[in-house]
């Protein structure tokens, strides 16, 4: 058990942070929702009712989709695009999908390589892109859920104001959907860009996200 906690400390720590933050969001979101209910002259709802509301679902989903979009783009764009000096980038002359040998695929696979790296057929193609396939699917699924939950929440507000509900297609071109979407995307793109650029000149001793402290600024693709 101690060995498990040590060997998985990073994923456990982020899992605990996630659950704590989500619980905090649920509680604060419930308080905020009820404050609005009172302001609108409506009754307060229980926490259970809030957690099964479209308002809670859309708030969670809109943040989830943007995180997976961020990593999907980061994974894909770093295959072809480089940044001189950044540990997040490959060396400048390695842009692209790289050779079978470099990637240890097919007959270049090692004895302890994953089974699907060795076959050299469609399984290798699938496994070669499995990270972007899963992250991309999670992005699309959570963005779809955001659109449905956001649509339901939007129509509930309209009904309370004696306005006709709109269709899902209309919601997809509505400012509410795009304001929720883009306010999340802009911060993700800024954060990734910041990481790529700042890691050229700044260091964190001991972090694999940084170059070694004494590594020259001009060296690319070196992780500490």
């Amino acid at each position: 058990m101690r060995r498990f906690l040590h060997e998985s400390a990073l994923s456990i720590a982020f899992g605990v942070l996630f659950v704590g933050a989500l619980a905090g969001q649920a509680f604060a979101g419930w308080q905020q929702f009820n404050a609005q209910q009172v302001a609108d002259g409506l009754g307060e709802v229980t926490l259970g009712r809030y957690l099964t509301s479209a308002d809670f679902a859309v708030d969670v989903a809109e943040n989830w989709q943007s995180e997976w979009l961020q990593f999907s783009l980061f994974i894909l764009m770093t295959v072809w695009l480089v940044q001189k000096g950044s540990p997040e980038s490959k060396e400048l002359d390695r842009a692209g999908a790289e050779s079978m040998k470099d990637q240890k695929i097919g007959r270049y696979a090692r004895r302890d390589s994953p089974a699907w790296a060795k076959t050299g057929d469609w399984r290798t193609t699938v496994f070669s892109n499995s990270l972007i396939l899963v992250m991309g699917t999670l992005f699309l699924a959570s963005w779809l859920i955001q659109s449905i939950a956001g649509w339901a929440a939007f129509n509930q507000d309209r009904l309370q104001q004696q306005q006709d509900p709109i269709g899902w297609g209309s919601y997809l071109v509505n400012a509410d959907f795009w304001a929720r979407t883009l306010q999340n995307w802009q911060s993700e793109f800024l954060a990734v860009g910041t990481m790529v650029v700042f890691s050229v000149y700044l260091r964190q001793r001991g972090s694999p996200e940084s170059k070694p402290v004494g590594e020259p600024h001009t060296n690319t693709g070196v992780e500490g």
């Binding site: 998985s8 899992g15 999670l138 959570s142 859920i145």
Partner: peptide, 30 residues
Amino acid sequence: VAGMRVMFLVYLLGIAAGLAYMFVVAVRHV
């Protein structure tokens, strides 16, 4: 090795459960 598999499945199944929950909640309110 078993620990790595456990964390992989915890994340993957946890996310799938979260997405399924939000999907059901969303569709119920449509």
